[in-house]
Design a protein around this nucleic acid. Structure first.
Lengths: 265, 265
DNA sequence: CTAACATTAAAACGAACGTTTGAACGAAAT
DNA sequence: ATTTCGTTCAAACGTTCGTTTTAATGTTAG
């Protein structure tokens, strides 16, 4: 009990801190020294407990995704059991898939919005080991839900469903990851929740709930949108578009005097 | 003419190479030595022409976004001129905003899919200087389109429109950025274009066109989806969710024997 | 008590990073 | 012919990176 306490404590502290810092700065921009000092642990602790920085990131995700994927599969199992062979409603499938995730954002014990944001941002990271890791973690869940959508929408071509699943994942990931990115651009619309000034934690919880309420109808609307007309082989070329102009700033305006002596201050 | 040729040549070569490498590896994971050697330029060339690595990234985006934003504003101007004061159709607005971008993906001279992917991935990067840069570059365009959507959808609350604009941006960015990410997970559905084996460039062009055809209906469906019912103040708490269990792997299964002596091979 | 073990601690490793320097080059301009 | 200036070059700058090493610590079991 107490022999584990010391070790497990440091281990969990590192995981929690790494989760937050990876979310805030990204994987590459977060150094092990930043992590260990923020976790009040020794620099060597990460390599001792996890083996490497890459393995640390994997473990940060594994402890959350294990719960998430299990919950998602269980939700789908339950739905299919209740339906007794009949195809499910798309809204049920989306609720099981996205609702489960968004409910993580409302529960700080499961990572809360910190993990949701980290997940959304990391899904687009180009690093090879991250992609292969996610591919392995997500394979089963995606496959199950893909098949469920196939039988829920028998009239929609399967390729179209895959595309739309892709779009839905994107809308969700981006909405989560960018709650402070695009909100800045669009004019700070998060804080309009009737003057609630609470902890960051409860603030995040409220945000997660609002996000879920507004995201689900959007996704359903997109999923059930009319199919595009397929004028595939006709290759419309709306305008020839001058192939010469390499970019906009050939010699036109909009050109600030950059390379005179470069802008070192 | 020739005195500029040498310098401009290196400069453009660096921009092109950096655009591709930032897309493939991300900003932090791409070193200046990788960039300059791939561009067959000297290591100091980046600091000479652009001043710093950050400024290089900004310039990579500026030369594309200048064209894109100008085109987007012009498209909206044209639409509003034709409408003569009447509100626009949402489909027109989306076509002007997203169609303009997706048409960049079909034109390699404007960056093609390389730039589109880079844009999609960089929008979620957490680095401060990137966010402030994008905020400045996008502010005017987003504002104009936001207002256009407000008058196009007078019955929809403005906050809801902003959220859905956010979702649409996410679906697009993610769909673009992850054409090879999620496609791997979902089972390699890109290559199903009737056995076309062509250059990477024309392949990308075809991909951009297919993406546009399938993305636009999805976005329109999401934008026009029925509004969510607002049961905001009731705080549904579907299940208490044990606040004790910090994470899934307290002592359950799914636990691989990690910290025995760590996994250094 | 002591041997074994898991964990922490401090220090150093070599490699890679972004940036700077100062000289050299080459085509204009004087 | 010489100066000028934008550009390129090789080399080095100091810093930070992830990882490893070696010793010290405290707890558990025989």
């Amino acid at each position: 009990m107490s022999d584990q306490k010391n070790g497990s404590d440091t281990r969990e502290r590192i995981l929690d801190v790494a989760e937050r810092l990876f979310m805030e700065n990204g994987y590459e921009a977060t150094s092990m020294r930043t992590i260990t000092s923020a976790a009040e642990a020794n620099l060597a602790a990460v390599n001792y407990h996890f083996g490497s920085k890459e393995a640390l990131l994997r473990e940060v995700f594994r402890r959350r995704l294990a719960w998430l994927n299990h919950e998602r599969l269980q939700a789908l199992d339950k739905l299919e059991e209740q339906a007794a062979g009949a195809p499910l409603k798309p809204s049920q499938i989306l609720e099981a898939f996205f609702g489960t995730l968004l409910r993580m954002g409302e529960n700080p014990a499961l990572g809360g919005m910190v993990f949701l944001r980290l997940l959304g941002r990391t899904l687009t990271e180009p690093a090879e080991f991250i992609r292969t890791f996610f591919a392995g973690e997500y394979a089963e869940v995606i496959d199950r839900y893909k098949l469920a959508l196939f039988s829920a929408l028998p009239d929609v071509p399967k390729a179209e469903i895959v595309w739309r699943l892709h779009f839905m994942l994107g809308a969700m990931s981006y909405a989560i990851a960018g709650t402070d990115v695009l909100q800045v651009v669009t004019g700070c619309e998060v804080g309009d929740l009737a003057g609630e000034k609470a902890t960051d934690e409860t603030d995040d919880t409220v945000l997660a709930r609002r996000l879920a309420q507004r995201l689900m109808p959007f996704l359903l609307g997109g999923l059930r949108a009319p199919l595009p007309q397929f004028d595939d082989l006709q290759r419309i070329q709306k305008e020839p578009l001058p192939k010469t102009a390499r970019d906009t700033r050939g010699n036109g305006p909009n050109q600030d005097p950059r390379p005179k002596t470069q802008d070192q201050q």
